[in-house]
């Protein structure tokens, strides 16, 4: 665990961080450091300069306004897991944050760093996708008014460790609509025993009126390049009463939503993970709708 030599700069504002980024080719933003530093220490990557944004307080914090939950990119998993604003308005995210790594990881790791790293085995991309989250991104234009843009979770993740973030851009905030009383959300995963990373993760947000599902956002992740929306599953759920039979027949359709690019490894093959996608999705819906207690 001995990284190659690198320069270290501590930015005091977002605009300073962006300026440092644009002036130093190859430089990377350091948030919690829980993904980047191990890669550097294992010499899997060599970074000429780290720009530490840890001291920028404007990037921290959780608030709810106009039914939108806003989380600063530098907010740690622990802060999310301890927030009543998150618990009351996005319970799925609250629970997921609590399940990330261990206390040390949660105390250092940040939601923005996690998303920008875009590890396919991470839980948050899947959860934010079903929560229909929007990411605020600041670029060089940010030095003037209006230099920021907003990208939806559906468009942000491009591939494994690859996002829509430009070279000189920083993710500053994550926003999502709060869950309404008739919305039920859940994230279920099969965790790798070594890391608790998702072998297969499944997230759902279901809107239910008079026992009938009126809207659904469904995604699976952990074994595809980016979290994969289950569009045919969503279609099959909408308009249906959420009973065991309908849930089973809808979730099995996830196979059709998965592309051919499905990961496997020595712990769990692609074939197994594909089969588990429907099962984890079923678990998630059972838990979201309270059916799990009867099963």
């Amino acid at each position: 665990m001995f990284a190659t030599e690198f320069e270290y700069q501590r930015a005091t504002s977002v605009s300073e961080a962006i300026q440092l980024l644009s002036n130093n080719p190859g430089a990377k933003i350091l948030a919690g450091g829980h993904s980047l530093l191990p890669m550097m220490k294992l010499r899997l990557t060599s970074i000429p300069m780290l720009i530490d944004i840890g001291g920028i307080n404007e990037l921290r914090g959780i608030s709810v306004e106009n039914n939108i939950l806003r989380i600063g990119a530098l907010t740690t998993h622990a802060e999310i897991a301890e927030s009543y604003d998150v618990k009351d308005n996005a319970g799925i995210l609250w629970e997921t944050a609590y399940g990330i790594g261990d206390p040390q990881v949660r105390n250092r790791g940040t939601i923005g760093g996690n998303i920008s790293h875009a590890d396919p085995a991470s839980d948050l991309p899947t959860v934010l996708k079903v929560m229909d989250a929007k990411f605020t991104i600041q670029g060089t234009g940010g030095l003037m008014r209006g230099g920021s843009r907003v990208v939806s979770a559906d468009d942000f993740f491009i591939g494994p460790f690859e996002t829509d973030l430009g070279e000189n851009e920083i993710l500053t905030a994550i926003e999502m609509p709060v869950l309404m009383a008739n919305q039920h959300a859940e994230y279920a995963k099969m965790a790798h025993p070594a890391t608790s990373f998702a072998v297969v993760g499944a997230g759902v947000v279901l809107t239910v009126e008079d026992d009938v599902c009126t809207a659904a956002r469904v995604a699976v992740g952990g074994f595809t390049p980016v979290p994969t929306r289950g569009l045919t599953v969503e279609q099959a759920l909408i308009g249906k009463v959420l009973n065991e039979e309908n849930i089973a027949s809808a979730t099995i359709l996830i196979h059709g939503d998965l592309g051919s690019d499905v990961f496997g490894d020595v712990f769990a093959s692609a074939e197994y993970r594909q089969a588990m996608a429907a099962i984890e999705l079923k678990h998630a819906i059972f838990h979201a709708t309270g059916l799990a207690h009867h099963n």
Binding site: A194, T195, V266
Partner: peptide, 8 residues
């Protein structure tokens, strides 16, 4: 430790 799973 990422792939070799020790008991937790």
């Amino acid at each position: 430790m990422t792939d070799y799973a020790l008991p937790r």
